[in-house]
Amino acid sequence: MPHLIEVWNDTVDSRHLTGGIAISVGIAVSSYLIADHLFAAVGNTELGHSYALLIGILGCILGAVITGFLFKPKRVITTSTADTRDRQEIIDEVVEEYGELGDPRELPEVVQEEVRALGLFEALVDNHESRRTDRPAGHESDREK
């Protein structure tokens, strides 16, 4: 894939991009200019100018839709089925990045229910317990931020 480049935060094929812009600009600009000319010819300049803009916009949409049909996205989508690794390992990674996730048992009842419904309750309790036994002192403040 020698023509893939990043434009405006996503990957495109530079040839497809050139083609797409040529199609859309071509359709939109010519439909605007023709419409503007026709409205002016029938003597309806002020309002006609606005209608020509509307027609030009429809041209933009048409051009973008045609481009979309011609050129497919350059993205690879992987739908990761739930991480197969050990749950504790994943939580450890999050803790590494963010700090202690805390003991869910100290949360108010409604929030505990929410954590239970997510299936995270036991895992968070285990993680909290293992951390407490690992580092008996000052474990709450040293991981903040």
Binding site: V7, W8, D10, T11, V12, D13, H16, L17, G19, G20, I21, I23, S24, V25, I27, A28, V29, Y32, L33, H49, A52, L53, G56, I57, G59, C60, I61, G63, A64, V65, T67, G68, F71, K72, P73, K74
Partner: peptide, 21 residues
């Protein structure tokens, strides 16, 4: 389904038409 080329092409055309207007 929505290619980035189509989004950029649509915006480029929009810029041209509004400016000419």
């Amino acid at each position: 389904s929505v290619s980035h080329e189509a989004i950029i092409a649509g915006f480029a055309a929009l810029i041209c038409v509004i400016c000419l207007y």
